[in-house]
């Protein structure tokens, strides 16, 4: 089971647009909601209303600030992160029980919770922090790419995408087959220069990230305020009197 398939027929995954993500965490909540009620044990929370709450999540949104090399304004980037369904997934090969596996049909990396001993080694092997050992059930939780939605014929066609993709109000998350060069997601990656996270780890992630577009810069013309012609003139008549009266108060 923990031998990786040589090739997978499809490479289903996510493309995350760092330019568009507004950091609202809606995807985090949608993910937690769906995956608490469906595949595997619920995503537990411990001390949820206490002083030191901890919980399991399959998707988390970091926020970073880039100080541009050439100087100028800093740029804030919201950065959602979940399992990247790597091609050469190190988390799978280290698993002693065969609980962790990568599907040959679509490349999704899953955990069979009934075989997981909770050793945590797979979480150590993942560079991205995409696996969390559930603190109540003691089994490994990770993004399933909503395997129980995307093929689910009981759902409306429009809902057969991962919960995070369906919910994102900014359209920052795209789902599709990254193994097919003609798919929408592959085209998007090619067009926008999608990249891998920590490529030096050699994990060959399926999920891609689209870079934030450079910030608009003040042009010389815009910076020259004399080019702005006033559009409102000094008020006259009644408004002029009101203005003076208010000023005097």
């Amino acid at each position: 089971m923990t031998e990786l398939p040589e090739t997978t027929q499809r490479k289903l995954g996510l493309v995350i647009d760092l330019d568009t993500c507004v950091g609202c965490h809606a995807c985090v909540v949608a993910c937690k909601g769906w995956n608490t009620e469906n595949y595997g044990v619920p995503l537990s929370d411990v001390d949820a209303y206490g002083a030191d709450p901890v919980g399991s999540f399959l998707n988390r949104v970091h926020s970073y600030e880039i100080a541009p090399t050439g100087g100028g304004c800093s740029q804030t980037v919201h950065f959602p992160k979940s399992c990247l369904h790597c091609d050469t997934a190190p988390c799978v090969t280290v698993c002693p029980t065969g609980a962790s596996y990568k599907r040959s049909e679509d490349g999704i990396v899953l955990v069979d919770e009934s075989a997981c001993i909770g050793c945590g080694l797979c979480a150590w092997a993942c560079p991205y922090g995409a696996r969390e050992l559930d603190q109540v059930a003691g089994v490994m939780k990770k993004c399933t790419l909503c395997v129980d939605r995307i093929y689910n014929e009981n759902l409306e066609e429009v809902d057969r995408v991962p919960a995070c993709v369906r919910t994102c109000p900014a359209g920052a998350r795209h789902f599709g087959d990254l193994g097919d060069p003609d798919s929408d997601v592959s085209k998007l990656v090619a067009e926008r220069g999608g990249f891998d996270l920590m490529p030096e780890q050699g994990t060959a992630p399926t999920n891609k990230y689209l870079p934030p577009r450079p910030k608009d810069r003040l042009t010389a013309q815009a910076a020259d305020s004399s080019s702005l012609t006033p559009i409102a003139e000094e008020p006259k008549g009644f408004l002029g009197w009101l203005d003076m009266a208010l000023e005097a108060l």
Partner: peptide, 25 residues
């Protein structure tokens, strides 16, 4: 920079962590 893939733009620093409490990671 390599972790976030944003290194070609400048130096990267944490602005806000994804959660206020601790977690398994």
């Amino acid at each position: 920079e390599t972790a976030t893939g944003l290194g070609d733009r400048g130096s990267v620093r944490m602005f806000e962590p994804p959660h206020t409490g601790s977690n398994y990671l």
